[in-house]
Structure formats: C-alpha cells, structure tokens
Computed example of a mutant assay.
Amino acid sequence: MIEISNLTFGYSKKKLLFKNLSLKLQMGRIYGLLGKNGAGKSTLLKNLAGLVFPLEGYCQLKGYRAADRLPGFLQELFFIPEEVYLPGSTAIQFAKSTGHFYPKFDEAYYFQMLAEFDVPQSSILNNLSFGQQKKVMIAFGLATNTNLLIMDEPTNGLDIPSKAKFRKIIAAALTEERCIIISTHQIRDLDSLIDSLLVIHEQEMVLNKSLEEIAERIHFSSSAPMDKELIIYEEANKIGLNTMSINDKEALSKVDMELLFNAIINDHKSVTNTLK
C-alpha cells in the first residue's frame, strides 16, 4: 500500500500547494490523477518519488518514507516524468547500465516492449524523436517490475496508433503487486485504462474513488432525467445536454471522466457529497 499522510508542501512557505493532504492507494489499480494547471499534480508525483521534500507529513511505500530515498525504496519505484532526457547510448546499452539497479528488471520484456512500440534496439537514444524517447522510458519502466510505477503525461508525444498500443500494454502490465499512477490532461487517451480516479483541487484531494464506486452513485447520460431534482451537473453539447444525476436505479452507466472533472471544478462539494 502507498500512503500519503498529512502532506504539506510548497516551494515557498508563503504559497502552499498542499496542506494536510492524506490518502491511501491500493496495489492492483491504475489511478488517473487529474487537476487544473498549477494544481500540483506533477509536484505530488515528485513527493511520492522522493524528488522533493514535504514541509510536514510524509509519503510511504512498503514502510519506506520517500524523502529518505533509501535503496529499498528506490528499487520499488520508477518515475517517468513529462520531459525525458536519455543518454547518447543505444537501448541495449541503456538496459545494461541501468537495469541492474532494479532487482526485478526483465531485459527480455524490455526488448519485447520496444518491439511493440517499433523502437529499434540499436538506435542512439538522444537522437530519437520525443515520442520515441517516451516509448523507451515507458518500456524500461514497465520492465523494472517495481511495485509503484508513476507516469506524468505519458501520452504526450505519442501518435494515435502508439496511444492505442500504450493502453493495451499498460492494461496487460498491471498485477496485484503493482500500483500505476498516471497524471494526465488527456483524459480521452486513458478513458478505457483507468480504474480509479484521483482529483486534486484547491490544495485538497477531493476525490479518490474507483470508477465502479462512481458509477454506482452517479448516472451519466446525454439526456436529462425525468426528475430534475436528481441532477448534479449538466453541460451543453452540440446536440443537447450531458448530465450527471444521482443514480436511483441499479443500472450502471459509463463514467464520463471529463464531465465528472468539470463538475468537480465547478462545485466539488455537490459531487463529493453524492459519492460519500
């Protein structure tokens, strides 16, 4: 389990990004982390990875505190930032020089993922396009087999076929011993991949629910319900309305994550109160 406890962080004490933020994340899940620009998504991921240090509180993985950056912690976490910088070596050389830091690194799986992404093993990494470099990092991160895999905007730079491959590969890589966190603005890219949703807003984690839990409480539709009092949020589209309403029936609808996010930004209490 990954735990964040009373996390308070700011790049200056006068302007905090988080204050007393707490949550627990479970293994065997793919979390989507959403938030407005500047809400602190990337910074939260860096706290989890031990790359920045909280003013108060802590992040913990398997009993290790992230800020201590002990070897046992670093071996169980891999972080793929939004901007990647790879060395002037081949993918094969990169595996030889870096893979040994991860006890469960699977070199054969790494090369298999490179082949899936159409990245030649002999290419000089820093000569590759940004999208190809992203694919190398995703392939390597998956091959480390760490308990926690963190990805910040992983689909940026990927073309449409590569995004489809990414979704397929990530879904297949999830195990009961692994937790995957993906921060993104491209909600539609990950619509069929994410099974749990995190939303950070106004220094708080206002949502931490599985899509199944959300669908049980909220009905998503392209038409308004007969009972207007059930409506939580509505948004005009080209042909009518997209609506969120209290689910008073047993039928489950597909969660519209973009609509849900917009509803939370508009009035997060009405959404979170429904989901309690």
Rank of each mutant, 00 (worst) to 15 (best):
I194D: 11
L149N: 03
K14S: 14
L74M: 13
G131I: 01
S129F: 07
F166I: 01
K209I: 06
G38L: 03
K41C: 05
S210A: 06
E235H: 11
V52C: 07
S221T: 10
F94Y: 15
G32P: 01
G40P: 05
N247Y: 05
F53A: 11
F53W: 12
T274G: 05
L198E: 02
M137L: 13
E116R: 15
E235G: 02
A215I: 02
A108V: 14
A139K: 03
L230Y: 02
I194T: 08
N273M: 13
D248W: 09
T184K: 01
Y102G: 10
Q133E: 12
F220P: 01
N208Q: 09
Q26M: 12
S221H: 09
K254G: 00
D189G: 01
N20T: 01
F130G: 04
S162V: 02
G99C: 13
S5R: 14
E204N: 14
L158S: 01
E76G: 02
P103C: 09
S270E: 14
A139W: 05
G32M: 03
F261K: 11
I160R: 12
A164C: 04
T43M: 02
L74A: 04
Q93G: 05
G72K: 06
F18W: 00
I200K: 08
A143E: 04
V199Q: 12
D195H: 12
M113H: 13
L198W: 03
K13C: 00
E56W: 06
L275H: 09
E107N: 11
Y85C: 08
K104I: 08
Y58G: 02
F94R: 07
F140D: 06
I231E: 13
G35K: 07
E204V: 05
V136A: 07
K135Y: 09
K19S: 10
L241M: 14
S22W: 09
G40R: 01
K163G: 00
M226D: 09
I264D: 07
R167Y: 06
P71K: 03
K24C: 02
L149W: 04
Y233G: 10
M151F: 06
A171W: 00
Q93W: 03
F101C: 08
E204C: 11
L17K: 02
T90F: 06
L158I: 01
L33H: 10
M244K: 03
M151L: 14
V52T: 13
D227K: 13
K228Y: 14
